[in-house]
Design a protein around this nucleic acid. Structure first.
Lengths: 212, 212, 212, 212
DNA sequence: GATGAATGAGGATTCATTCAT
DNA sequence: AATGAATGAATCCTCATTCAT
């Protein structure tokens, strides 16, 4: 009974209780779709079934909302990345990690687009925390790649570019999807498309960094 | 003597024509940097050394200006692509073509960012002409890749993804540059950086589609 | 005690509601004086003691404001007209009705000018509701006139023109007033002028549609 | 031959030669339709098949163009009126004069609307010349009416209102036409409608100012 | 006489934000 | 926590006008 009641409660919970989450969810989607400048608080409020001033009860302003969206969205990615990079000898299997990352992105396909908007803006809105994370992460990733046996195929100078290439491929798979779909091609983010992309990505990585 | 030269120059590029070019140039840069929504006509006018209403003497409005920027910027790329794709047996060497494209992009590094903004928007502002070009171009590119001996390494299903991957890598090299630079890393678009990227891109393509 | 009264007043007309009324009042006057195109929201805002964006808290835009002004202003007129036209045998005395209409117009001398602006524009901004009202009202009015004994003096073909003539005379009395005044003649809308006009109008109607 | 040549010449006359007339014609129509504020030089230029700056070759500005339109349009009316009013004993038959005036208006149905826009604006743009004409004309018209045998039916105070009434009826017939037409009723300004209106107007005048 | 280009002033409207309730 | 009302700043765009050609 309490279970039922709770269910009901959860569903009927006055909007207020979950407003913050609803705002974050809709803002994430809108920022991902239209970028920071292209998203208005009016849109966010409407999609959150609130009036604009209510947004200010939860976030200090548009910038703060954007930062919160970014932070919330990036956290699992950063954690997974950091976990992988800093695992040392206990580093999980590469394919396993790749699958994990793809899984995370598939769960929140807005994130790559959000990130890509940031990239195009030169990281204008990247919080200092995120900026601080990126640099060592890149360095660490290069180190990991360098330690890989397949790195012998590459000029040491090229390792940073290789890391960026993995980034482009992983993120691009998600960002290009809406356009591809708009061109009447198959949707790349469906239940069918995602495993295909994962396998392709894995194959590409294997081709560029062969285990042997 | 210099007076004559100057006169001739002035006559060959009357003020109006020069204004139009200046507007297109600055708009290209601004749209590339900040996207459509993030770019204001105020900025464009200021950077063009004009007052806002003057923009309307040359373009019907913001949308039209954006379309003109896109069209003008894309044309050389599309022509090069079309030339390569439809060359048949006379198709130039792959590396040669890659170098040509990289050269074009290096000349106008705004274009990839412009394109990427469009991609993130799902091609919202893509003129019908451009949209019409994209679909057959993708198909043709897939056909070309499929005809390559290296395609044997790939599942036929993966060819479209491979084409997109090449796109992600080529464009990504340029779009990520400002962020990378902002992270106090080397600039990827300098005279030094570009050849490195070209060689890297060539190496990646070779790894994914070996000639043999 | 006076405090209570004040409180009550404040509560009965909260600030917002008062703003809306103020806007409608000033807009009515300005639209009547200068027409739709000649009236700027800047004027409306200034005369309403508000800043322009505040207008948008109450009306969706200039068109919507105009529509609201028209609708609010026309309602009493339409009701009085409809009441008279559809009263059947209970139709009040003609002079009584005429006096009532003149009274309404005298209370809101902006209305005839508003209406006349609409007429000159061919009813461009007439809401569908108003348009829908006009046609049957004209038809009904013609029927009423036709049933009048004085109608025998007229060709049946002329009845519609006669109805329009009454309209021209009633409205014209108000619209011409500012010009007449500008020509240094007596003001037709003063406490003195109005009864004169009413009597004149009554006399004209009596001359055109004698009771006998 | 010369006749033919002339015809051809007239038709092929370079736009320039007749530009002034074309501008006046289109401006008259547009000012009549949309009023002063609602008419833009852009509209006038487009409808005159010219670019805006060319208008300034013929008129000093918008105000001057409007004044010219008004002056040109009013002149025949004023002359006819003055002729009638000042004819003294030689004054032509009233019906004849009425027909003449209706004829003039029918030829240029824009004029009444133009005038009515002026009236609604309180004569803002009325040139001093026109203003100066109006006052004595009104006085003269009152005098003429007063001298009419039918004036005995009216209180001397009412004569000014009677004159205005004639004005309202004459002008209203033309200004209401577009709205009436928009309400799916017969067009009052057709070859059929105009004689009807003329007869009606004559009948009304006869009823209000019987010859006897 | 005609016009492309330029522009100051102003048009309606939107935006992010604040505040009283 | 929610919101109606208010607003400074800015958005895109239009207008009438000028000037060089």
């Amino acid at each position: 009974m309490s279970g039922l009641a709770q269910d009901v409660t959860v569903r009927l919970t006055p909007k207020g209780a979950r407003s913050r989450q609803r705002i974050l969810d809709t803002a994430e989607r809108l920022f991902a779709e239209k970028g920071y400048a292209g998203t208005t608080l009016r849109d966010v409020a409407a999609a959150s079934d609130l009036r604009i001033p209510s947004l200010y009860n939860h976030f200090a302003g548009k910038e703060a909302l954007y930062a919160a969206v970014l932070e919330r969205g990036m956290q699992p990615l950063l954690e997974a990345m950091s976990g992988y990079l800093e695992a040392g000898d206990a580093r999980p299997d590469r394919e396993q990690f790749t699958a994990q990352m793809f899984g995370l992105l598939a769960l929140r396909p807005n994130l790559p687009r959000l990130v890509q908007h940031e990239v195009l803006d030169g990281g204008t809105h990247l919080s200092p925390i995120l900026r601080a994370w990126f640099k060592p992460a890149l360095a660490k990733a290069e180190e990991v790649v360098r330690a890989h046996p397949g790195a012998r195929n590459w000029d040491p100078d090229q390792i940073p570019l290789l890391v960026l290439a993995f980034y482009h491929l992983a993120v691009g798979a998600f960002t290009i999807a809406p356009l591809v779909q708009a061109l009447d091609r198959e949707d790349l983010l469906t239940e069918d498309g995602l495993p295909k992309q994962l396998r392709f990505f894995t194959d590409v990585v294997a081709a560029l960094l062969p285990e042997e």
